[in-house]
Design a binder for these strands. Structure first.
Length: 493
RNA sequence: GGUCCGAUGGCCGAGUGGCUAGGCUCAGCUCUGCAAAAGCUGCUACAGCGGUUCGAAUCCGCUUCGGACCUCCA
């Protein structure tokens, strides 16, 4: 495809991407709830939108990327007793709520850094926007779509649906929803089981609460995203993303709140939903107890892991599947990714040292770059992009072996394409250069060059014992020697 | 129970009507002092049954299996 197309969850169609106000793009992604460590499933969602962010920038768009931090907890799952998640955690650990928030926010940021996931332009917090949320509730009440009961305010889905469509995004119908609604405790306040809370009254035991026109309380689950996206991106904006599991009710309610608040018929032009990471076919989730923390993954310290995997291996593994498909997590798949990425990185190193050549078997570097763009233009199809990059690997290795001829311009073009798509768009940083830059990289490199020279001399003298000794000692240090046609070289890993 | 989605070779995973996905694994070969790396070749799959079509992994129906969501369980 020669222009970016996005699979829009709202219309269920692949649509050409045309921003509302080019070259500017507004993108909002539902961020983490910071009441515990993020697991790998969370990471996948943020990685998905990291790719979107990176590619939009690659295309030259000026992107304002907003990703919130949910630091007002929601109701606890275990008990349904109305206790704030973050409040509960705080009591358990005997910490101030904001201390818990800070701890897990820091953890979240660390994890994002490890996986080379870029920071958003704005990272607003729910607690930092209580005033705006109260104002939005007043607006919705004034517009007649919400009512107050005992200090809580509920959104009236029925009333809203008489004036506006409800359920478009998730494909749900009001009557069907009614039939399948479960009876939950403490919901008798609501006039209708379909209604959801905009503001919840809090009793004295609730640790996080704020004054409002309806008394002390805290905002409802869905409200913060509506309010913060509107504040920073406007009443209508381009892209809204999040995990598939947020589609209903969270995103549906968000739309309803936005429409009820400011009357725009459709706040978001393109809705995108990332699919789940599964373990043995089941969604990775905190409640399932099948989640990996990034630390467990990197160290391999987990009963389901055979070894540790580097962050870039994990990133590469996730990008080998399309974001809209479920991706199953397994040791075999991770190991395959590890080797595949190593092959790719090796070719990039080879490319850096390639000498120009002339010959008949040329490689079409323009077509290669075009294929990379086409893959990403087709709804961010990273698996196709990776497959295409391996096509480039073949050309590079072929040139190194003297079978494919590449001019100086070809080599420069290939380097540019790898830089753009492997590094900038896929965000796969070179882990080798990271470790080398940490210590005395240059000195070590000089020593290694010397050892390789010594081994070459030994080989010339047919002193195989010495040659193998050097190779084995270096191998024990994680340095691999490669013998090629034009001599030997070394690499880490 | 309702709504929606999926089922691809040894493994992971693209692909929506005819054209090689790709990675990993395994086997053989080339290169090499040996090995590694690299290259070449092979293992050529689309859950089952029916239908539409000149032609289906790709469209339609049914069956089986699996998954997600169903209003505060992200």
């Amino acid at each position: 495809m020669d222009a970016l197309h996005i699979a829009n969850s709202l219309t269920r169609q692949k649509e050409r991407f045309e921003p509302l106000n080019p070259p500017f793009v507004g993108m909002y992604v539902c961020g983490p709830t910071v009441y515990s460590n993020v697991h790998l499933g969370n990471v996948r969602t943020f990685l998905t939108f990291d790719i979107v962010y990176r590619y939009l920038q690659h295309l030259g768009f000026k992107v304002r990327y907003v990703r919130n931090i949910t630091d007002v907890g929601h109701l606890t799952g275990d008990t349904d007793d109305g206790e704030d998640k973050i409040g509960k955690k705080a009591r358990l650990e005997n910490l101030e709520p904001m201390e818990v928030v800070q701890q897990y926010t820091n953890d979240f940021h660390d994890v994002m850094n490890v996986f080379n996931i870029l920071r958003p332009s704005i990272e607003p917090t729910a607690t930092g926007h209580i005033v705006e949320q109260i104002e939005a509730i007043r607006q919705i009440v004034n517009n007649g779509y919400a009512y107050e009961v005992n200090g809580s305010v509920y959104f009236s889905v029925r009333t809203f649906s008489e004036d506006h469509p409800y359920g478009e995004l998730s494909g749900r119908k009001i009557d069907e929803l009614l039939n399948s609604t479960r009876e939950l405790d403490g919901q008798s306040e609501k006039r209708d089981p379909l209604d959801f809370a905009l503001w919840k009254a809090a009793d004295a035991s609730h640790l996080m609460q704020w004054p409002s026109p309806w008394g002390m309380g805290f905002p409802g689950w869905h409200l913060e995203c509506s309010v913060m996206s509107t504040k920073y991106l406007g009443e209508t904006f381009d892209i809204h993303g999040g995990g598939m599991d947020l589609k209903f009710p969270h995103h549906e309610c968000e739309i309803a709140q936005n429409v009820a608040c400011n009357g725009e018929s459709q706040p978001v032009k393109y809705w995108m939903h990332g699919n789940m990471l599964t373990v043995n076919g089941r969604k990775m989730a905190k409640s399932e107890g099948n989640g990996f923390t990034p630390e467990e993954l990197i160290t391999g310290n987990h009963k389901l892991l055979e070894q540790g995997y580097s962050p870039m291996t994990v990133r590469f593994f996730m990008l080998m599947g399309h974001y809209a498909s479920t991706l199953d997590f397994s040791n075999e798949a991770l190991q395959a990714a590890e080797k595949g990425l190593a092959k790719l990185e090796k070719a990039v190193e080879t490319l850096a040292t390639l000498e120009p050549s002339t010959g008949e078997t040329a490689y079409d570097v323009q077509a290669f770059a075009a294929k990379c763009s086409a893959a990403m233009n087709d709804d961010f199809n990273t698996p196709i992009l990776i497959a295409t990059l391996f096509d480039g690997v073949k050309a590079v290795n072929g040139a190194a072996a003297g079978r494919v001829s590449l001019s100086a311009e070809d080599i420069a073009s290939l380097q540019g394409t790898f830089q753009a798509f492997l590094r900038d768009v896929l965000g796969l940083a070179s882990e080798v250069s990271q470790t080398q830059s940490e210590g005395a990289g240059e000195e070590a490199g000089a020593l290694l060059d010397l050892l390789v020279d010594m081994r070459t001399d030994a080989k010339t003298n047919k002193d195989w014992g010495m040659a193998d000794k050097i190779r084995d000692v270096l191998a024990a240090q994680g340095i691999t020697i490669q013998d090629g046609k034009d001599g030997s070289s070394w690499s880490r890993g």
